[in-house]
Design a protein around this nucleic acid. Sequence first.
DNA 1: TCCAATCTTGCAAGCGCTTGCAAAACGCGA
DNA 2: TCGCGTTTTGCAAGCGCTTGCAAGATTGGA
Lengths: 352, 352
Amino acid sequence: MTDTTIGDSGSPSKVALRRTTGRAQMADVAQIAGVSTATVSRALRHPASESAALRAQVDAAIEQLGYVPNVMAGGLAASRTRTIGVIVPSLINSFFSATIEAMAARFESDGYQIMLGNSDYSLEREEALINSFLSWSPAAIVLTGQTHSRGALKRLLGTDTPVVEMWEMGDNPLDTLIGFSHRAVGRAAAQHLYARGKQCIAYIGAALDLDRRAAQRGDGFAEVVRETNAHAPVVSGPMGRANVANGARALEALLAAHPEVDGVFFSNDVLMLGGLFHCQRQGIRIPQDLALIGFGDLDFAAHSLPSLSTIRPPKAEIGASTADHLLRRFSNEDVPPETIDLGFELIARGSS
Amino acid sequence: MTDTTIGDSGSPSKVALRRTTGRAQMADVAQIAGVSTATVSRALRHPASESAALRAQVDAAIEQLGYVPNVMAGGLAASRTRTIGVIVPSLINSFFSATIEAMAARFESDGYQIMLGNSDYSLEREEALINSFLSWSPAAIVLTGQTHSRGALKRLLGTDTPVVEMWEMGDNPLDTLIGFSHRAVGRAAAQHLYARGKQCIAYIGAALDLDRRAAQRGDGFAEVVRETNAHAPVVSGPMGRANVANGARALEALLAAHPEVDGVFFSNDVLMLGGLFHCQRQGIRIPQDLALIGFGDLDFAAHSLPSLSTIRPPKAEIGASTADHLLRRFSNEDVPPETIDLGFELIARGSS
DNA sequence: TCCAATCTTGCAAGCGCTTGCAAAACGCGA
DNA sequence: TCGCGTTTTGCAAGCGCTTGCAAGATTGGA
């Protein structure tokens, strides 16, 4: 079976596909469209630089063949791909799921694929993921937070890949920063509890040793407590993951140690749900005996009994805004890095 | 600046890196290790086929240079990558998050990267994702469920990429199938409610039109109801997504239409949580007036008041088992497709 | 009608790695 | 010490696409 280029008297639209991958290649498309592969490539990557007539021919050939470009070959030749490396500290945490879904939706229409990495709140794993992602020549890297290992910083600075840090707000961003201030969230929560007439308020945060953002919310909270001069800040120290069991347990321990506490800010609505169940179990009246406010505005907060006050972070907005920024940057050389504070919203409900 | 191969009298460990990417290449590693790129490549991909001494030299050179292979180049040459394309119907649904985390953890040590896709319960989007993933020459494709579009089937059959369908159990798997029977789950839930002395039981399922697995659980449930001949199956028709609000709303509507119902099986623990709040609000006693059982064994189910009965799917086990199967397959030519039923566990708690 | 300026298009040289093949090195028995 | 069967290693030809450069086509003004 040798290639037969001459004597092909059959239908001109029938092209013998190469065997190597079994899939149509750009050369097949080019042949059917009667142009060179360079033209096909340009029709795909820079549609504006081709005449409309050719583009139509090429599109038809692609359609006919069901051609799907080989990302590897394209990526190797261009040394960049339509891939966005996104690293979040947790998948199970639905804050980030919402961000990712919004981001993916925005990117999809432009043909960008998200590569998702889960750092599990570890800077070393983040660094490893960054390394691994960079070897895919991504169009951009999106990180959660502003804290990174030295190695990660070095790698990131050594590349000209755009970087977005999200879900935080602070100084000296690596490149673009899109998020909100967790310190401000903590302050708002404390002020809210005082405004509701509470006298002694506490903060319960999960994994404060690992989760920088939860720690920052705690800092803001403690700041306001100190400013009132009324009582010492009560913070429930580092514990395991943010789950319902830990929330219930932490509230129980907190009330045992500080019975005077009459208002609690939880670093995560899931913890607060545990707290709610604990109160239901113990007959603690919410908000009379104890006011509760959380963070995240998760699904259940609006529908529990009582409904739960919370602070809504711009979960989806962060994803959408990140994608928008990057897409603008991909299509236009001189979009500068930005710092975008998306703010947050305190939603007062029955629990406070 | 032309290449200078001769007259390099400087330190032999100093190698001028190529400029193109700014990163060290395999050729640099080879030069430092004093071997050919072929040897380096083999040391990386098939360590067993190299002598230990050379492997050590190569490792040292890699270490010294901080060499990270270019995945594109390798993928193009080998026409396959250490990438696993995984498609789930939803990210926010923490069932799948747990599966993915377990799978990723297993794959990580072997250097396989997961590419995650979110089909949003749409077969068209699944097909698009499959196409997009295949253009990355993945080592395997992992799908959720056994239902796929014609186009997707065609593409999948036209490739020799291993395919795992997960989270279901049935006939005619495409290749490997790892999951459990949702029909059996539905049957178990119904039998449990009857065993608790309930007389008229109902099923509340979200998105039954889209979520095949939730529909199958409903089928199994209805089957048992019919077998008892005691009453007609009550099924709360398709509604929106599985969230707390919909759970509360659906239970309210169900009880309005069928006040005789004294036991409910929810397709998802999140719906059940909404049901629980509804009961708390209405003063409906659980389980005396109404027994509740859900599916998923989510975090909160064990800690609510009352605690919630549920059926625990092998969330993490599916991920681990999938990774194990594929890793075995990657390292050994003749591992055949498998069908693995991981079963499930009914966890009876206070709500039933 | 002709020429210069502007668009379009094709040529061909890579992108950095893998791998079949064959040569070199090695091991061992005679 | 020699010869033969086994490793171990290097050579070099791609993998399928992108893109700088230059040639060809087109346009408009003189």
